[in-house]
């Protein structure tokens, strides 16, 4: 009877949500830690060096050592800063990613919340994360940080537009904002994925490329890492942050990469759908997700940073017109 009540409690909606929330937080925490390890190892391989080797076998305990170091450091709040905003800013960047991950369908019945406006929710919360960097830079009372904050705002404005246009194109084709349904629509062999659906969107691969580029820009990853261009702005918006203040920003960067890659997987790579019909959906989802995450790391260690106006030019002169054109083309096709 005891077991029965426990399982009953666990299947109740609030308990399910709490469990999923804990699960997502653990997932993001572990990923942030071990993606740093993957990134450092990967960077090492790209640069003909071994990467971390000292702590644990193959440096596997390095992220834990780093986390311990960050946790034990003093949290310095510089004189004259806006204390509230300064403290809140890292959380503002971290929490939207955590919340948005709640609607991602990891497997067929594995989503914290299966809501109809899932896609809208992700992009609504995605816009908040820009606020995080901006407020962090603004409240730091540091010139480098303020320049960085200004850059982040114009970068985000420039890149939210093409990404939303691309998403609208996808919504037009799928007819739903429910991520589960979007994935369900892509069932079957891999040419059913929206990445290869030339019949409904002739420019589907281009759409994916635009989405991918914008995701790099939104998460402030190289080659679009204007916000923390270390050779120009020291550490940009994060200059004044120490200890876990910086640590949360750092984790949020990886959480946002995870989120961006998850959305790309759902929208273009068929989510948890297996192209050959073996193994559970979670496996396929994670495989596609980590393939994208790896490509993000690959890009970072391959290209130099773009110029700031180059980045804006790319968005306003290439990405927005192209994505607008795709939108019109797809809507015409849908109408036919």
């Amino acid at each position: 009877m005891n077991m029965r009540s426990i399982s009953l409690f666990l299947s109740s909606e609030p308990a399910r949500l709490v469990l999923f929330l804990l699960g997502i937080m653990a997932f993001v925490g572990l990923n942030a830690a071990y993606l740093v390890w993957v990134e450092r190892k990967g960077a090492g391989r790209f640069q003909r060096r071994p990467g971390p080797t000292e702590v644990g076998p193959a440096g596997l305990l390095q992220p834990i050592a780093d986390a311990l170091k960050l946790l034990s450091k003093q949290l310095i709040v510089p004189a004259g800063v806006d204390r509230t905003l300064f403290r809140v800013a890292p959380l503002l960047m971290m929490s939207p990613a955590l919340i948005s991950l709640a609607v991602i369908p990891w497997g067929e019945h594995l989503a914290a919340r299966n809501i109809n406006l899932g896609l809208l929710m992700i992009f609504a919360f995605g816009a908040i994360n820009t606020m995080g960097i901006m407020l962090g830079g603004w409240s730091s009372r540091n010139k480098y940080a303020i320049i960085s904050a200004a850059r982040v705002v114009s970068q985000s404005v420039a890149y939210e537009i093409p990404v939303l246009l691309v998403v609208i194109t996808t919504i037009l084709v799928t007819g739903t904002m429910n991520l589960n349904e979007i994935v369900a629509n892509q069932a079957g062999p891999f040419w059913k994925w929206y990445l290869f659906r030339w019949d409904v969107n002739p420019l589907a691969p281009v759409t994916f490329l635009i989405f991918y580029t914008c995701m790099l820009a939104e998460t402030n990853r190289a080659p679009f890492d204007m916000a923390e261009a270390e050779s120009e702005l020291v550490a940009g918006a994060y200059t004044e942050y120490s200890g876990m203040g910086f640590g949360v920003f750092f984790m949020a960067e990886y959480a946002n990469i995870l989120l961006g890659c998850s959305v790309a997987t759902v929208l273009f790579l068929g989510g948890w759908q297996s192209p050959i019909g073996v193994l559970p959906g979670v496996f396929w989802f994670l495989l596609k997700l980590y393939f994208l995450v790896f490509s993000v790391i690959w890009v970072r260690w391959t290209f130099p940073r773009t110029q700031f106006y180059g980045l804006l030019n790319l968005s306003w002169k290439i990405l927005i017109p192209v994505s607008l054109f795709t939108l019109i083309l797809s809507s015409a096709l849908v109408k036919l």
Partner: peptide, 9 residues
């Protein structure tokens, strides 16, 4: 210029 890898080469 933000490209770290060439340095090691």
């Amino acid at each position: 210029l933000g490209g770290f890898t060439p340095l090691l080469y």
